[in-house]
């Protein structure tokens, strides 16, 4: 098998790396690629085979990924699902789920915010370093920070509990595990943004006009990378909020995050109650995911 004409370039862009390097960086646009104009070309109307197959598969996959979401809502609202889908509607399950899980929701929100703060404190300087400096061990640092993707969450959790058994009751381990697990995504979004030549040119201009380092950071760099920063923030919050695999060994009985309670409900509870708790979870996560997708569409990773 031989590589096609564009292969080496693509190899650099999509070589083993974080999902989000690729994710948040839109396709490497070659100057000859007329995708923006393509849709208006009249000959596109009778679709060619490649496009037709692609569209059919995309529709099939979208049906698979989307259909469960309204179904969760339907079951959460049904008075008694076992008596069939038409037994009547009620908000009773949602109200019950809310009183049952609001404490856990609070725990998850607090953990997610704490994780985000730590991520930014650790990740922003590190992304700056990786994007703007060449130093011995740079590749190693880049590679090591992808390790949390390679090491399963359950193994990270087990390692933490074996290494620091006395810290478990404090809940510190769960936060540490979440930071490790979410940080690569933050680096993946911020590093290309901080390396963007446009931002760096603006910084030099500001510097020649006499702006000091703090002013440059606050008025040039941060606004310049705000799309990537917002995307990274949303990503870290939603990932931590839904994180279960790392937390499985690490949560404390008094500090159960929302996913742990959801899991209990999936194993033991009634379908309606589990669906109602899931609706509350989705109400937090899906809007953030949609906002993230909009940001992704708006050139996060390059801007």
């Amino acid at each position: 098998m031989t590589a096609g004409p564009g292969a080496p370039a693509a190899a650099r862009d999509s070589a083993p790396s974080l999902p989000d390097d690729v994710v948040r960086a839109p396709a490497p646009t070659s100057p000859t690629r007329p995708s923006a104009r393509r849709r208006r070309r009249p000959e596109q109307v009778p679709l060619d085979g490649v496009t037709r197959v692609g569209r059919a598969f995309a529709i099939g996959a979208a049906v698979l990924t989307l259909v469960p979401i309204p179904l969760v809502l339907l079951v959460a609202l049904s008075a008694s699902w076992r008596e069939g889908p038409f037994a009547g509607l009620t908000t009773q399950w949602l109200v019950e789920a809310w009183t049952r899980v609001q404490g856990n929701l609070g725990v998850s929100v607090r953990v997610a915010v704490l994780v985000l703060v730590l991520d930014l404190l650790i990740g922003f300087p590190a992304a700056w370093l990786i994007a703007r400096h060449r130093f011995p061990g740079r590749r190693l640092l880049q590679a090591v920070s992808t390790v949390p993707i390679a090491v399963p969450g359950i193994a990270i959790g087990l390692g933490l509990i074996l290494a620091y058994p006395t810290l478990r009751p404090s809940g510190v381990l769960m936060v540490a595990g979440h930071v490790l697990y979410t940080l690569p995504f933050l680096l993946g979004a911020l590093t290309p943004a901080l390396g963007d030549p446009a931002v760096r040119v603006q910084e030099s201009v500001a510097a020649t006009l006499g702006a000091g380092p703090v002013r440059r950071l606050l008025t040039v760099t941060l606004p310049g990378v705000r799309g990537a920063l917002l995307a990274a923030t949303l990503m870290v919050l939603t990932l931590s909020f839904g994180e279960f695999n790392v937390a499985f060994f690490l949560f404390t009985p008094t500090q159960q995050p929302l996913p742990v309670v959801l899991y209990d409900g999936y194993l033991t509870g009634r379908l309606e109650a589990a669906a109602a708790a899931t609706v509350l979870f989705l109400a937090c996560v899906v809007p953030a995911a949609l906002a993230l997708e909009r940001l992704g569409g708006a050139k996060v990773g390059q801007a």
Partner: peptide
């Protein structure tokens, strides 16, 4: 664009919720 969003959103869903989707469906 809509199809792209539909295929991307599950990235934010934890494995347990995906498992529940299958149970529910």
């Amino acid at each position: 664009r809509g199809l792209a969003v539909a295929m991307t959103v599950p990235l934010s869903l934890p494995g347990i919720v995906i498992g529940f989707f299958i149970i529910l469906t």
